[in-house]
Amino acid sequence: MNKFSTILFALIFSSLLTSCKSEAKKETSKEETETTSTEKAAPYSLKNAETTIGFTAYKTTDKVPVNGTFEKIEITNGGDGNSVKEAINGVEFNIPISGLETKDNGRNLKIRKFFFGVMENTVSLTGKLSIDSDSTGVADFTMNNMTQKLPFKYSIEGKTFNMNTTMDIAKWNAQSAIDSLNIVCKDLHQGEDGVSKTWSEVAINASSTFK
């Protein structure tokens, strides 16, 4: 084999070797992409679910209900699973106070400013849900710079998760916030007995329907 043939053979062999390496890298990259895609695609994801959060507060000594909702919720950690229960268990969330809605702009402003606004670090409500049994769980709920455990009951119907609980806001050291709101709403929270009252008890219900 002459010198020219030797050089030509070396070039061809080098080209084939490089091509094989390139194809191997492409296959590896494709496998990695497919694996990552499979890991992310959980059958149930709270980020894609339709979630509603409602609450009922109470005023006057007759305990007249005042209903509202939080129209925004952010899933900050977890929320994925192979079942509804698995997706809920361990999920962490953030609920901005700016999303509070009671269908009364004046009331919305008062609650944001004179209730949540006098608390510490309460631009949003945060928490983590943990499932204890087939019907009960507990939320590590943070408000007014304090985290307390909030037990709840739940049910699962098909792809829909429903939960409800009642919280005593005073347990989050928020009595001053209740008093603050009652002052600005004194006349509106006054019953036939002439007493103005804002209850520390608030009922909460939430529902998530997975797609």
Rank of each mutant, 00 (worst) to 15 (best):
E23V: 15
E39G: 00
K110G: 09
G81Q: 04
T18F: 15
L100R: 10
E32Q: 12
D168I: 01
G99W: 10
L17V: 13
P65R: 05
L8T: 00
N48D: 15
S207W: 03
T166Y: 00
K110P: 05
K159T: 08
K63C: 04
E201L: 10
N164D: 09
I95Q: 11
V118N: 14
D132T: 12
C20Y: 13
F9V: 06
T69M: 09
K159C: 04
E120W: 00
E32S: 07
L181F: 15
S176A: 08
K30C: 09
T52K: 11
E101Q: 12
K110T: 01
K3E: 12
N144A: 12
I131D: 04
T209Y: 04
K159I: 02
S22K: 10
A10T: 11
T165E: 10
A87N: 01
I97M: 08
T102C: 09
E157P: 07
Q175K: 06
L109K: 11
E50I: 02
L11Y: 12
V195F: 06
S19N: 03
D187V: 03
F116G: 06
S98C: 04
E74Q: 02
I183H: 11
Q148H: 15
K103A: 09
I111R: 14
T35R: 15
L100H: 09
E27R: 07
C20A: 15
T38H: 13
A170I: 02
V202T: 05
G194H: 10
D104A: 09
K186S: 04
T28Q: 10
K171D: 12
M119L: 13
G158M: 13
V184I: 05
S155C: 06
V84T: 06
T102L: 10
I53D: 01
N164T: 03
T61L: 13
D80P: 00
F141H: 12
G106F: 09
V91K: 05
L125F: 10
T198M: 15
M146K: 05
I183R: 13
W199S: 08
L100P: 06
N48A: 13
T126R: 11
N162F: 06
G90A: 08
K211P: 14
D132K: 14
L109Q: 12
G117F: 07
P65Y: 08
E39V: 05
I131T: 02
F141S: 09
E74F: 06
T160A: 07
V64G: 11
L11F: 14
K211W: 07
D104G: 08
Q190R: 15
S130H: 00
S124T: 03
Y58S: 01
T122K: 02
E27S: 04
